[in-house]
Design a protein around this nucleic acid. Sequence first.
DNA 1: AACGCCACCAACCGCAAAACA
DNA 2: GTGTTTTGCGGTTGGTGGCGT
Length: 332
Amino acid sequence: MEAGELCLPKLGSRDGKSCRLRWTNYLRPDIKRGKFSFQEEQTIIQLHALLGNRWSAIATHLPKRTDNEIKNYWNTHLKKRLAKMGIDPVTHRPKNDTLLSGDGQSKNAANLIHIAQWESARLEAEARLARQSKLRSAGSVNSFQAQSSEFASTSSQIHKPFGPGRCLDVLKAWTSTGVWGQKSEAGAVNSGVSMTGVACELESSTSTLSSAAGVGANSCDVDGGVTKEEMEEEYWKYLPEQRNGIRSSFPFTSAWATESIRSTSEHVPCGNFVEKFTDLLLSTDRRLSEDGGESDDGSGSGGGSDYNEDNKNYWNSILNLVNSSPSDSPIF
DNA sequence: AACGCCACCAACCGCAAAACA
DNA sequence: GTGTTTTGCGGTTGGTGGCGT
């Protein structure tokens, strides 16, 4: 049975669920309508590369845009634009893969995907925390008010305790220490590095874990009958002293997380191909629309530049994107 | 004017998880 | 603990308007 079918009177042909949907997607006063800006497009593409079809998560970084609107915009505009450029809109990789083949680029792309999945699972956890926190703080506020002031309330009541930079703490650790692209080192102090090391150990001690991770497979199911909670417990055995400090960054929400961290600890930076690609995509599209000219060589992968530097730039851009975005993001 | 095609987007649908009784 | 209701989400559909023929 769907929501509202019994408990709310019908408004014309609309039931409660339909009314709620119309409110959240259309009538809510804090919804921005109209054309998406260049910045918004870039944000959507980058976040989609990270999160896949997690429209609600993406929407948290685009204040005043609904997940439905973003989803529609992606399906009607951005997806086609990607396809037109020979980019797989699901994987965000060139369809023929030639641009990424040969050197470490293919691996880099795979790593990025792993990381994206890793982060997306953590986003889910963060979102859950935020929801719980919101419920606690909502107190006696009636549901209508709570809903209509969602953005404001989440920013002022939920996120402050976590701090503005809480979001991508692990990524920050990677970028700030330069550990990205290097073998993990024992005794590293920050959470990202520590977890990298732990991930390796954990994997070796839990042979049931799979290293699957197909592109876009955001499922948080854990293979081999190991539950998320079990994995989490296992994880904290290795890091008891950090249990309170970085709990929200627990990475092993699925099997692929282990693999993703393991693989990134083994080698290479991922390359900043997503960012460059995004820029390329958008700029190319602009050029095409402006003068009908042809795009440049399309080597958005960054060629032979300094990978570590590129990576730093890439993740910094993501961090900037996330952190500069409305602290009103319900998740961050 | 009539028709077909296409793009856009609000709305619908089904499912899962959370909340509630 | 269990069943029911509510909420949130992502995929898909259908109505509408613009455009070309």
